[in-house]
Design a protein around this nucleic acid. Structure first.
Lengths: 209, 209
DNA sequence: CCAAAACACGAATGATCCTTCATATATTCT
DNA sequence: AGAATATATGAAGGATCATTCGTGTTTTGG
């Protein structure tokens, strides 16, 4: 995200040497591990440090407090996710609308599902975190990526691309999350996913695509 | 919900006298107030009791621990929500599909939005809570209510009502949550909501409704 | 009206946790 | 090499919290 974090969530210092970059990454990974193994309410600075193989003090060199760590972790996650979706969108410029929709849904769905346990704990770690800026930045990147893609569809003539695009994203992202949280069996998930693709495609066609 | 809570989340005792029923309700309301005013991470048993005008000890007469309180709170919320939606569905039996969809989306959307701050804190209070059973029970009630409604639509002939119904609910519930979490301006929310209604209607018509 | 049951109280206990800081080691630069 | 900077350590301080339990009060049923 190219949006500045709330000041109070900024890192204390940026890693300058190679070893500290390694440390910071280990801390991120350790955070996820602890979240997976113990849950948010047992996510302790000490536990994270221990799992990362460093001392608490070291953690506090890079994150002024626990919240900043969680903020940075979510930032990293959303950045990577946005990268993936953007790449898929770019690779589908000029393709038929049907291919676009299918690819978009597949990419997002897979990204969320392939490590559903991680997705879950990241959601939980974001609660009680002032991450509106993060979410908005992510949404904005997605908006731009998909709008640009849709605009290149052959025979596309959307009356109001922005609204259609926003609706499409809310529906896709929302549905994935809902299915995900209900923890439906894989078969049911796949069936709904297929329906979702068809539904979105029909919607776009009706809207001028 | 008619599903038994996980044993460890059961209330210690049920209120028998009138005054204790008042107490329990005050505790629920106080919990919401504290959540609104301070957030999950400052939700303490003492604070809740204080706000409810009772002592901590009293709280522990009805809830064996904090988690049980939050569990019961979410149970109460989902029960009421399900009641509302069920009533709307019932009142639309036999109506045209278009009216059904519009009413369903309106009912759910309004229920979630009219006190969006409460909705938000309830979501946050459910994190790190073993509430799968609750969610599943809610989903099941909704499934039955909407499926029964859709089956009464004039000219309805769904090839696979169950899948269509499940998709519809995931899409609606998911989209509402997504729009809700992004905290879009009211105008944008209304626009998307309208699109969602149209989208769902087209979907149902294509599926045999 | 009285005993039993239900309800209410809240200080004390024991545990967990975030964060700091004085100190020590490693790396870079000149 | 030596100074300056970056990185790492972890014990200790200070604060918050969930939960218990001995005790007091109110209601109910006979």
């Amino acid at each position: 995200m190219d949006v500045p974090a709330p000041r109070h969530l900024n890192a204390r210092k940026r890693p300058r040497q190679a070893r500290s970059a390694v440390t910071v990454d280990a801390i991120f990974e350790a955070t996820i591990q602890v979240l997976l193994a113990e849950g948010v309410h047992r996510l302790t600075t000490t536990r994270v440090a221990e799992r990362a193989g460093v001392s608490v003090g070291t953690m506090y060199q890079y994150f002024p407090h626990k919240q900043a760590l969680l903020y940075a972790l979510n930032e990293r996650y959303l950045d990577r996710l946005a990268d993936r979706i953007e790449a898929v969108c770019l690779s589908h410029h000029g393709r038929p609308t049907a291919a676009m929709v299918a690819a978009l849904i597949e990419a997002y769905w897979d990204a969320k599902t392939e490590r559903s346990d991680v997705t879950r704990v990241l959601y939980s770690s974001a609660v009680e975190l002032d991450n509106e800026a993060l979410i908005e930045a992510f949404a904005h990147r997605m908006d731009k990526a998909t709008a640009a893609m849709l605009a290149t569809a052959p025979n596309a003539a959307y009356a109001n691309l922005d609204l259609v695009n926003a609706t499409l994203l809310s529906v896709i992202f929302g549905t994935v999350r809902n299915v995900f949280e209900r923890n439906l069996p894989a078969k049911a998930q796949a069936a709904i996913r297929k329906q979702l693709v068809a539904m979105c495609l029909t919607y776009l066609e009706g809207a001028g695509g």
